[in-house]
């Protein structure tokens, strides 16, 4: 809990080093920048430099052998004329929206509930979190097996699932991917909301009770507004997570039927590592970064998160 409370403070805009000024002029425990250097160089080598390199590679043609060859805007022209690329962007958007609207209400409700002090809560929470520990690969393989048309659950419950081939149609395949995403990520977001809900000051509820507000009223008038910052963080994580969904698509649908679940992140993998067109793959990767950053900025802007300093605003 302390982790949550303290690490939330240096949100965008808040400078972390402006705070410890309280320890006065003491120079003890004031390490030089050199302490940060090894990690910074290491991270730059594998994340920042490649991020710049992906931009350069998007203007080259490279098949994995020999050296990349500069081709100007060729890859970008290819992409813009590529119907699969356009479709993948729409599918990604659909994934993000469906992911956010299914996971957010559920995780807020579960998180607020789990923040309470019921007796059975601890046991239930322990089970809720299990999907969170499993790899996307394991989860996808598990669900693929569970949804097998012949030997899986749909075959046994045919009154509910019809012919049982859920992954055979576009709507079925998207539904499965969204559901598996929910199964996998709701625990994580629940945990975030649970932490935040515990941090809401009790005085607010006591005041509301004196004013005669019921439980539902309290939820909408106090809990939800107080969870606003948390919701923004959670939604940004969902957006980036949805945009970069990969293992589930690869293992559950392989982008199909046809290209009906080929979202942009998966298309990038196909172009780069299955068609060995690393130039086009890099261009798609760059699109992913731009879209992820843009959506996150929009969420931050629209919510006014960048202007807030305290998560307990108005208190």
């Amino acid at each position: 809990m302390t982790v949550l409370a303290t690490s939330r403070r240096p949100a965008p805009g808040g400078s972390p080093v402006s705070r410890p000024a309280r320890s006065g002029a003491s120079s003890v425990g004031r390490p030089g920048f050199i302490w940060a250097l090894p990690a910074t160089i290491f991270f730059a080598l594998f994340a920042l430099v490649p991020l710049a390199a992906v931009a350069v590679l998007s203007f080259t043609s490279w098949s994995g052998l020999g050296d990349p060859r500069f081709v100007g805007f060729e890859n970008w022209e290819t992409l813009m004329a590529d119907p699969v690329m356009l479709k993948s962007l729409w599918l990604s958007l659909l994934f993000i929206v469906l992911g956010v609207v299914t996971q957010t209400p559920l995780s807020i409700l579960l998180g607020v509930w789990a923040a309470g002090n019921q007796r059975n809560r601890a046991v239930l929470s322990a089970i809720y979190f299990i999907p969170l520990l499993l790899s996307s690969a394991a989860i996808s393989v598990l669900w693929r097996a569970l949804l097998d048309p012949n030997f899986g659950i749909p075959g046994q419950l045919s009154w509910l699932f019809g012919d049982g081939n859920l992954l055979g149609t576009q709507s079925g395949a998207i539904g499965v991917l969204i559901f598996v995403g929910m199964w996998q990520f709701t625990p994580f977001h629940t945990l975030i909301y649970q932490g935040a809900a515990r941090g809401i000051p009790h005085v607010l509820y006591q005041a509301a009770e004196i004013d005669g507000a019921g439980r539902v009223r309290q939820f909408f008038a106090i809990t939800l507004p107080q969870l606003r910052n948390t919701a923004i963080t959670s939604i940004i994580l969902m957006v980036v997570g949805g945009l970069t969904t990969f293992e589930t698509v690869l293992i559950l649908t392989n982008g199909g039927p046809g290209t009906d679940t080929t979202i942009t992140a998966f298309y990038m993998y196909q172009e780069a590592f299955q068609s060995f067109d690393f130039g086009v793959g890099s261009a798609i990767a760059l699109v992913l970064v731009i879209v992820a950053t843009a959506i996150s900025l929009v969420v931050v802007k629209v919510s006014g998160y960048d202007k807030m300093n305290s998560s307990l605003e108005g208190l």
Partner: peptide
Amino acid sequence: VFRFFLLGLAIPAQAVIVPVFY
């Protein structure tokens, strides 16, 4: 550096996988 690492949180592995492979 702290901002730099905050920014790093938002970089998906997919975005840099081609250069990392290279």
